[in-house]
Design a protein around this nucleic acid. Structure first.
Length: 269
RNA sequence: AUGCGGAGGCCUGAUGA
């Protein structure tokens, strides 16, 4: 069954769900890990309803979910905004006393945020004693998605004091928060200065996020500065800059950059 | 024993509200 689990995982992650399922149904002595691999596979491939269905089947067979299965299924519930199912699963988690698990905690927050229930997400967040980078950034990103940039930034400030070392993802979440705050670039500039100070200013994801931020803030000059200051520009950065020109009504510059991109021999997708 | 089968947050983009 261990080998089969590994095979299910491999086939599913490669996108071959048929083959994964075939191994899954033939596996001897199916256990919770095997089911977890299959459920995870469906979620990975965006088949969230299939995953929920499988989760129900698993419980009908008398198998008790563990942290891994719960985190997968909460992700699936969030993806399809199945709030009712998500809350039922949450209750079940509490009865099993697994609600303090780190991964469970952040997937609960993500699920509630995706379902539009910010209050529920906050309640979970507040109840957790240990908050890591993932939890904080999930929370910040959730607020941003609901257009609440100011509270998102306030969270970021708290997060910086709470966490040992804020990581890249946390900074990109904070950048997005700044981007979502109207047309006021001051927060964004301060954050950028900080990012330069800690030496993260050549990280590609960070640069792309900053570029996008200045684009949102309609500050073309700043966006160009970021783009030009980048060492390794990927297709993403080019697309970002081209889109920025287009959005800020510089169709000509947008096209010029597109041509330049082709000259540099980059793949256009 | 944070290792030896499965789990969590991040970068641009599509004709449109």
């Amino acid at each position: 069954v261990v080998i089969c689990t590994s095979l299910v995982n491999m086939f599913a992650k490669c996108g071959n769900l048929k083959q994964a399922h075939k191994v899954f149904v033939q596996a001897p002595h199916p256990d919770i890990v095997l089911w977890g691999a299959m459920i995870s596979g469906y979620v990975h491939q965006g088949q969230d309803y299939k995953a929920l269905e499988l989760f129900a089947n698993m419980q009908d067979k008398g198998l008790v979910p563990d942290c891994f299965t719960y985190s997968c299924i909460l992700k699936a519930s969030g993806n399809v905004t199945a709030l009712k199912e998500g809350m039922e699963i949450h209750n079940q988690i509490v009865t099993q006393r697994l609600e303090w698990d780190k991964v469970i905690g952040s997937t609960l927050v993500i699920m509630y945020m995706k379902c539009g229930t910010v209050e529920e997400a906050c309640a979970v967040f507040d109840s957790l004693p240990d908050r890591d980078n993932v939890l904080w950034s999930s929370m910040i990103a959730g607020y941003v998605q609901h257009g609440r940039g100011v509270p998102a930034l306030e969270l970021f400030i708290r997060a910086q004091k709470d966490v040992a070392r804020p990581d890249k993802v946390m900074y990109t979440s904070a950048i997005k928060a700044c981007a979502s705050i109207g047309d006021d670039p001051s927060h964004g500039r301060l954050l950028q200065e900080h990012i330069i100070r800690i030496g993260l200013d050549q990280d590609e994801a960070i640069c792309n996020a900053l570029l996008g931020m200045y684009s949102n803030l309609k500050s073309l000059k700043d966006a160009e500065k970021i783009f030009e200051g980048m060492q390794g520009r990927s297709v993403v950065s080019w697309n970002s800059m081209i889109a920025t020109y287009a959005e800020l009504e510089h169709a000509h510059l947008s096209f010029e950059l597109f041509k330049k991109m082709q000259q540099e021999g980059l793949f256009i997708d």
